[in-house]
Design a protein around this nucleic acid. Structure first.
Lengths: 198, 198
DNA sequence: ATTCGACTTGGGCGAACGTCCAGACGGTAG
DNA sequence: CTACCGTCTGGACGTTCGCCCAAGTCGAAT
């Protein structure tokens, strides 16, 4: 049961990933350096290029893992919603712990931006966002909300937009936000069938 | 009428500001360097620190000017809306030229992020966002939409969230977006106070 | 004509950057 | 015991970083 050399190696690799995620949030994507990374993780600088091909590759892997982790925790929780209003309430309350200056919020925003400059990252992150959108859309469709795909897309975008604005200006209270957002999901299939496609 | 030395100086200063805005979008806030800035603007490196105290100071001023410019063009256009649906339509169509990878979208996102690491920038940018929100809220209030402040805040956040998601995943068509968003503004003053208290 | 001041140049400062590599360490296999 | 392999160290490489400054240019003011 004693940790083997390879086990230690894996642990160091994982520690580098965690450190990278923290530093992206703290300093910004393009300001994460090999040396700070290594020092924070408690290893020599060379280790970074032993485990990862380059710093950008490390950042990419770290960010995707972190984003995937958050979405995987969020998704199942939303699937429990029995009504559209409940879905909105879950979304709003799930956002409450993040104030826009926390590591998670910043990592998301940094990753979105980095994706516009890194095609590989853009593709992978796009899949994550798409699957989260689909999860939302399926739930909305089951709850008979009109235009579930478009509604899900806008809801997901609003979530990230709120996290972007939150550090700048005090936003609406969770109650107010839920009230307003519930209007967004009050279109039911009878009142207005989605125009265009289906 | 001939340009004086001081005129040229002002012009160089302005060119540095424009170049900075472009480079923030292109490389990311923390990756804009003195030398690239100077070369792109066609001047020697020393000029940057002659006109501005430091690179961060230049970035701050450039970003704020650019954001102010965009909001000043957007605001008056929205004030022309005669109905809530029309307001949404103006918002959606005003967003159409930006695909999330254009300089303007990227500059906004970069500036929001930089503001979380620069208190002076945060304060100034917060004022700009606040005044845009108030403009939206006033319009919504005049159109008898319930909870105008909260609605304006979420609408503004959604705009930025959409720009953040757009490069990753093809979003809803403008028509679909307008349809869904118009549900967001369909609460009128009589029907309100359905659930959450004000 | 001379002085002045705003503007610009080009190079130099120490520090930090990403990447690479020769060699040390330590457990496992033959 | 020897040979090996995955892991890690510490330092070196050339480049770029932000910032600074002595010197030069040139129109405006005297």
């Amino acid at each position: 049961m004693a940790p083997t050399t390879a086990d230690r190696g894996r642990e160091v690799r994982q520690r580098l990933l965690d450190t990278a995620a923290a530093l992206i949030a703290e300093r910004g994507w393009t300001a994460v350096s090999t040396r700070v990374l290594a020092e924070r993780a408690g290893v020599a600088a060379g280790v970074v290029h032993y485990h990862f091909g380059s710093v950008p590759a490390l950042l990419r892997e770290a960010a995707l893992a972190a984003v995937r982790g958050v979405l995987d925790r969020f998704g199942p929780a939303l699937a429990a919603a029995g009504t559209a209003d409940e879905l909105v309430a879950l979304l709003v309350s799930g956002l409450e712990p993040y104030d826009g200056t926390d590591p998670t919020s910043l990592l998301f925003a940094e990753t979105y931006l980095a994706a516009t400059r890194d095609e590989a990252l853009r593709a992978d992150l796009g899949e994550l966002v798409t699957s989260f959108r689909r999860l939302l859309a399926d739930r909305l469709a089951a709850l008979r909300v009109a235009a579930p795909e478009a509604t899900a897309a806008l809801l997901a975008a609003t979530v990230d937009g709120v996290m972007l604005h939150r550090p700048l200006v005090p936003g609406p209270t969770p109650d107010e936000a839920a009230t307003v957002l519930s209007r967004l999901v009050t279109g039911d299939a009878r009142r207005r069938t989605g125009k265009g496609r289906s």
